[in-house]
Amino acid sequence: MPANAWAVPAVLVGALLPLVVLVSDYFTGQLGANPIQRAEQQTGVLALILILLSLATTPLRLLAARVNVRLLWPAKVRKTLGLTGALYAGVHLVIYGLDKGFNPLGLLTDAVKRPYITVGLTALLLLIPLVLTSRKDSVRRLGFERWTRLHRLSYVVAALGVLHFWWSVKKDHSGPLAALVVLLVLFGVRLLLQNRKKARTGTPNVASGD
């Protein structure tokens, strides 16, 4: 079995384990005095972490390639990370609904009145087309260009997720700040690599002409 064959199962287990622990902690009373809130926060953070990790895979592969290391596993686990991130986001919404007593009207009011809910819910809705086009044949059916453009939405989702996280905490912004830094680094690496690519293959200019 090639080494890369382990990547997807390993990521899947790693991504789902926190959910198993969360459920078991809930039933054994390990979530503290306010278990609903704790579960809400943990699933939200896990969703964001997994989405950021899925966004990190391509820059990681490209950076490795620049130092002549050919990594195959990042591309393989990207989808698993994205889908499990979306799963946590969905569970996060369900727990939020439970927290508010499953009141759809209340959720709608919140979505309109509270910017952090508006932003979080928007991120969640934007995840839907990404999940729906995550199948292998979706790339072929949409065409590579269109699929790629659509999946750039994942950056929007992550940015909205960070903003949602930022606005939802009372005072301690260390978690949201860490997420923001990761997001900015990922953006930065992308821009850098894109410019290099343009400089190498793009329109002739003084620098590349000889």
Partner: peptide, 18 residues
């Protein structure tokens, strides 16, 4: 309301609902 959340309800610690 708090600018970012509603103050209309509360969870009494130990309760599931609000």
């Amino acid at each position: 309301d708090h600018p970012r959340w509603s103050q209309a309800t509360e969870r009494r610690i130990g309760d599931l609902g609000r």
